[in-house]
């Protein structure tokens, strides 16, 4: 392996292994904003170890939903091909960081010789970006759900307007009244109306 300057004098080389391209992009953007330019993304599991050896990174970040984590464990065995990495969890006294990382769903492998002060901000950015992605995903799912509810309510209103000869406002008021009486959501009542119409129609 060619001689390289010690890691304290040059940018930290980061490999990011994530099968979610959106999350990877969010994290990459965060790390770049924090001044890290040497970021390489690996989004599949083919020849993973060889590709990592070729890049020879200082830090490897991998999402915990990724079965390839076990492939990385091989790095502890093969010291011939790569500088010996150590797991993030080697600092077992830092239980708070460990819990935060596991909760966020990410794990980091760090090579020997990289100072704790340099790892900590990378890890903090990673954890906060992973958490941001989770929130984004939750919000997206909620938004999708709300859109579906709106569509169902519109269909139910249409059915009521046709069958009862009422206008849109009256149809909505009817749905709301039934929902209040039955202590259910308007969308649930709307779904019943649509289902009934399909059965009877």
């Amino acid at each position: 392996m060619p001689e390289r300057p010690p890691v304290s004098d040059r940018p930290v080389k980061i490999v990011l292994i994530d099968e979610s391209p959106v999350r990877a992009a969010i994290l990459e953007e965060g790390l770049r904003a924090a001044g890290h330019d040497a970021i390489m993304l690996i989004s599949d599991h083919v020849n993973l170890l060889e590709r990592i050896y070729a890049i020879d990174p200082d830090v490897i970040l991998i999402d915990l939903e990724n079965p390839s984590r076990d492939v990385l464990e091989q790095m502890f065995q093969v010291s011939r091909a790569v500088r010996r990495p150590v797991g993030m969890f080697v600092d077992q006294t830092d239980a708070v960081s460990i819990d935060r990382a596991i909760d966020a769903g990410v794990s980091a492998y760090v090579v020997d010789g990289l100072k704790k002060e340099r790892i900590k901000p990378i890890l903090d950015t990673t954890i906060s970006r992973f958490n941001a992605f989770s929130r984004l995903r939750t919000e997206l799912e909620q938004a999708k759900g709300q859109l579906e509810e709106r569509k169902i309510i519109d269909r139910a209103k249409g059915i009521l307007m046709r069958s009862k000869g009422i206008d849109e406002e009256q149809a909505y008021a009817l749905l709301r009244k039934v929902a209040m009486n039955e202590k259910k959501k308007i969308s649930e009542i709307a779904q019943s109306v649509v289902t009934a119409a399909e059965l009877l129609g």
Partner: peptide
């Protein structure tokens, strides 16, 4: 779980 490494970590850290 999806990996032995995850199982080991979660067992070790009390999850």
């Amino acid at each position: 779980e999806v990996s032995w490494a995850n199982i080991r970590d979660r067992l070790t850290f009390g999850h």
